[in-house]
C-alpha cells in the first residue's frame, strides 16, 4: 500500500495512471465508435445493438463502473499534474517561443476540459435523456436522428469530437511513451499509430451528426 501511495504521489506515477486509464478509455472509444456505425445499416440494427448491450445486465454496470473509475482517475491525475506543472513555473517568461510542441500537446488540457463537459452532456443527451427533447428508451436510432436535427447540438458534437481527435493524437503517443513500451527509434512508430487512431475515431464519430444534418440519415 505504501508503495502504491508513493507511486501515485510521484509525477511519473500519475503519468502512468493517466496512460493506463487512457488506454482503457481509448479502447472504449473505439468500441463505442464501431457500435455507432450501426447507424449506417438501419434503425433495426442500431436498436438491436443497443438492446443487446442492455441485455448484458450486470456486466454492463461492471463496464460502466470500470469506465467511470478510469475517467475519474484520469481526470484527477490530470488536474493534479496540471497544478504541479503550473506551480513549477511561478514567474512566466516575458517572451517564450515554443520550438516543437504541437498544437495537440499544447491544447491537451483544454481539450480534456471540453471532453469532460461533453461527456456529461452526452450522457444526459443519449443515455438518460435528460437533455433530449423527445427521448425514447427503445428507439436509440430515433434519439440520434432527432438529437442531431438541432444544428447547435450537432455542432457541439463535431467540436467535441475534434478535440477528442487532438486529445488522442498527443495522448496515445504520450501514453505509450510514458509506459516506456517502445524500443528506441529515430521516428517513433507511436506517432503514426496515434495519428491514425485520432483520425479514425474523429471521422467515425463525426460522420453521424454530419450525416444527420445533411439528411443522409433520417
Amino acid at each position: 500500500m505504501r508503495r502504491l501511495l508513493l507511486f501515485w504521489g510521484s509525477t511519473v506515477g500519475k503519468k502512468v495512471v493517466m496512460a493506463v486509464t487512457g488506454i482503457v478509455l481509448v479502447g472504449f472509444v473505439i468500441g463505442h465508435m464501431l457500435g455507432n456505425l450501426q447507424m449506417f445499416r438501419d434503425a433495426e440494427a442500431m436498436n438491436n445493438y443497443a438492446a443487446f448491450l442492455k441485455s448484458t445486465g450486470g456486466l454492463l454496470w461492471v463496464a460502466r463502473a470500470g469506465l467511470l473509475t478510469a475517467a475519474v482517475l484520469h481526470i484527477i491525475a490530470a488536474v493534479q499534474l496540471t497544478l504541479i506543472n503550473r506551480a513549477a513555473r511561478p514567474t512566466a517568461y516575458v517572451r517564450r517561443d515554443p520550438q516543437v510542441a504541437t498544437f495537440a500537446s499544447r491544447t491537451l488540457r483544454w481539450g480534456g476540459v471540453i471532453l469532460a463537459v461533453f461527456i456529461v452532456y452526452h450522457l444526459g443527451h443519449f443515455t438518460t435523456g435528460t437533455f433530449h427533447p423527445a427521448f425514447s428508451h427503445r428507439d436509440v436510432y430515433g434519439n440520434v436522428i432527432i438529437g442531431f436535427r438541432s444544428v447547435w447540438v450537432a455542432l457541439f458534437y463535431v467540436i467535441a469530437m475534434a478535440s477528442l481527435g487532438l486529445h488522442l493524437f498527443h495522448g496515445v503517443w504520450a501514453g505509450v511513451r510514458t509506459l516506456g513500451l517502445q524500443q528506441r527509434s529515430e521516428v517513433p512508430i507511436q506517432r503514426t499509430v496515434a495519428l491514425w487512431v485520432a483520425i479514425v475515431v474523429w471521422a467515425g464519430f463525426t460522420m453521424i451528426p454530419v450525416a444527420v444534418l445533411l439528411g443522409v440519415l433520417n
Binding site: G9, T11, K15, I84, N85, V100, A101, T178
Partner: peptide
Amino acid sequence: VETMDLEGFGGCTLFGE
C-alpha cells in the same frame, strides 16, 4: 524521481521542447 518531484519541478507531458 521522487527527489526531482520534491524539488518542485513539474512533470513530463512529452512536449518535446
